[in-house]
């Protein structure tokens, strides 16, 4: 996929901690084709937020990127200067964060914030306010003109998330990153937000990198899905392929436990017995071996290769490599 909008190759992110180097993300490869929606799914702590923070280069100050590259619209993001990166953010790449109730500035009005982020445009103030009003209307906020004067605490969580989406899409970016935009919301709101995102995505024609805990949401929204486990990508393919034909035991377990219906909301992924290995002292061999039902002798010492089990469907598991077991 060389025409991909966003290409991540061999990307690792480590955090300096008191206990040593925490290897939060290791050798991740990923593509986001233009105009598509790619879902990233995985348990809490598997490195989803780390992944997106590294794309917009807003990682915590104790983070380092030991290797890898991130190419966006043909430019290597990791090689850009801070200033060049800042110019890209909010213009070509926008982001909707995880917790809607704390992502907006509490002491500035919504209108002020929506006008402020249009600082690149040379349009008049009246024009910028008009643009903000249109955006609020497009995410389904009634009476947008007067609501612009209000402050975040005067809106519900669901409305704040809509406002965040309106802000993120205001500049019509090429890539929208959404970090669990619906996790803090209840089920009906979640459905509404998903439909809203899908509609806006078709209107604007952008790509979305969609992070979620919730398989049902991914199935509903995404064209491609990337399954992450403990800082690694373990499986990747079209949503249809991965959901109907899961190749990694982790994905399989997730699907088996998931109610699969978007209306029945789960706060977190279905629980799988066992725990994510310690990311400071990583075990040898396969990262999933301590929780895998199909664990074999080679899983102990050998890291499984990244193989294509079907066309466009990749997995890292020894099972998939075994002849006659694709």
């Amino acid at each position: 996929m060389n025409d991909a909008l966003l290409t991540i190759r061999d990307l690792s992110v480590h955090y300096h901690t008191d206990r040593g180097e925490l290897k939060a993300m290791r050798h991740v490869n990923m593509d986001v084709p233009g105009g598509s929606i790619v879902g990233v799914v995985g348990e809490s702590g598997c490195g989803k937020s780390t992944l997106i923070s590294s794309i917009i280069r807003l990682l915590a100050s104790n983070a380092i990127i030991p290797c890898g590259s991130i190419t966006f619209e043909g430019r290597d993001l990791l090689g850009l200067s801070r200033e060049e990166m800042r110019r890209l953010r909010g213009d070509r790449i926008s982001i909707v964060f995880q917790d809607p109730m704390s992502t907006l500035n509490p002491v500035l009005s919504i209108g002020r914030q929506m006008v402020d982020i249009q600082y690149r445009s040379s349009a008049s103030r009246a024009h910028k306010i008009k643009r903000a009003t249109e955006m609020l209307a497009s995410v389904g906020i009634s009476d947008p003109g007067s609501r612009l004067k209000q402050f975040p605490h005067e809106f519900s969580g669901g409305m704040q998330q809509r406002i965040s989406i309106a802000m993120a899409l205001q500049a019509e970016p090429a890539l929208l990153i959404a970090d669990e935009p619906t996790t803090a919301l209840d089920a009906t709101l979640e459905v509404q937000i998903i439909h809203l995102l899908k509609k806006l995505q078709t209107d604007i024609g952008c790509s979305i990198l969609f992070i979620s805990h919730h398989l049902g949401v991914i199935a509903e929204l995404c064209d491609y899905v990337v399954v992450m486990y403990a800082g690694e990508v373990v499986e990747e393919g079209t949503t249809r392929e991965v959901f109907h034909n899961p190749a990694h035991p982790y994905t399989e377990r997730l699907l088996r436990c998931d109610p699969a219906s978007i209306a029945t909301k789960t706060r977190s992924l279905p629980t799988i017995p066992g725990e994510i290995p310690d990311l400071v002292t990583l075990p040898q061999g396969c990262i999933f071996k301590n929780r895998c039902e199909h664990v074999m002798t080679q899983c102990e010492h050998l890291v499984p290769a990244w193989i294509e089990s079907h066309s466009g469907h990749f997995v890292s598991c020894h099972l998939a490599a075994k002849p006659g077991n694709d």
């Binding site: 953010r89 909010g90 704390s102 992502t103």
Partner: peptide, 17 residues
């Protein structure tokens, strides 16, 4: 360190703002 500052930065607002 609050989330809304991260948001402001994610919109590429100049550090001064």
């Amino acid at each position: 360190g609050e989330n809304h500052i991260r948001t402001a930065r994610a919109y590429g607002l100049p550090e001064r703002v």
